[in-house]
Structures are given as structure tokens and as C-alpha cells.
């Protein structure tokens, strides 16, 4: 394994951050990672959300988690966004590029990207 000393350094730096994390999770981005999601390309979508949210410094407010099959396999990769006090938003047929846009417009800008949601695709 890579230098474990580096891990120790990360741990030192993280001491304060661990406390902050307790209050985190105002917004949850949930990516479907069952067979259907993975086969349709969920892995790069998930990773783009994780990277982009970290790049934008939003990690304390937004958590990215994985879930199994939610039963709409034909729309995979599916991403659900849960925000306290708001209705759940379901994005379908996602790609890494669309993930960037959702972070920019929805998670940063507060505006749902309507054309990628299930109601737009299913209409």
C-alpha cells in the first residue's frame, strides 16, 4: 500500500472535520447501484457526483450515498435528490456530464434541471 504516513497526516487534519460531519446531510444524493444501474453506467455518474461536490466545497452540506434497485430499471442510471422540506427529485438516464450540470444548477443554484427528471422523460 501507498505510504501509510500520509494517512496519519490526513487523520490529523480531519480531527476537527469529523465533528462538523455530525451535522451534515441536509441534502442527500442517492445513486442506484444495483445490477441494472451498474450495467447502464451508474459508476461514472456516482463518481462524478462525489468528485464534483468535493471540488465545489459542498461536502459538508451534501452527502452522496448508494442504494439498490428502486424498480425503474429502464430509466437507469437513476439519481434521487432528497432535500429537507422539499419534494424528492428523480433524475433518470444520467451521465457524468449531466451530473456536473445537476450539481451546478440544482445543488448550487437551487433550480431543478427539469429536462433530466423522470416526469420530463416519462411524459
Amino acid at each position: 500500500m501507498k505510504s501509510l504516513a500520509e494517512l496519519a497526516a490526513i487523520r490529523e487534519k480531519m480531527k476537527d472535520k469529523v465533528v462538523i460531519r455530525e451535522g451534515s446531510g441536509d441534502v442527500r444524493v442517492v445513486v442506484g447501484m444495483a445490477t441494472c444501474g451498474i450495467a447502464a453506467g451508474a459508476r461514472p455518474v456516482l463518481n462524478r457526483f462525489v468528485e464534483k461536490i468535493s471540488e465545489e466545497g459542498l461536502s459538508d452540506k451534501i452527502t452522496v450515498t448508494q442504494t439498490g434497485c428502486i424498480g425503474i430499471c429502464q430509466f437507469e442510471p437513476v439519481v434521487e435528490i432528497y432535500e429537507a422540506g422539499k419534494e424528492k427529485v428523480t433524475y433518470v438516464k444520467m451521465t457524468a456530464e449531466k451530473a456536473d450540470e445537476v450539481v451546478e444548477k440544482h445543488l448550487k443554484g437551487g433550480k431543478v434541471v427539469a429536462e433530466y427528471t423522470i416526469s420530463a422523460v416519462n411524459a
Binding site: 500500500m1 501507498k2 494517512l7 487523520r11 480531519m14 469529523v18 460531519r21 462525489v50 461536502s59
Partner: peptide
């Protein structure tokens, strides 16, 4: 081996972005 990592990290969760980046770099370098 995350067990070895945890010996150093203590209660720092493995899903923190810095740890995930370390894992990615570690494996890529190997």
C-alpha cells in the same frame, strides 16, 4: 487492506473524500 488503514485512521470514516482519494492514488501507483 482497510483493516491496516483503520489502525492508523482510528474513527475517521473511510468514505471521506480525502481517504477515498488516498485509496485511488494508492492503488493507481501500485
Amino acid at each position: 487492506d482497510t483493516k491496516q488503514m483503520r489502525e492508523i485512521l482510528g474513527d475517521v470514516p473511510l468514505d471521506d473524500i480525502e481517504i477515498l482519494n488516498w485509496i485511488r492514488q494508492s492503488l493507481s501507483e501500485e
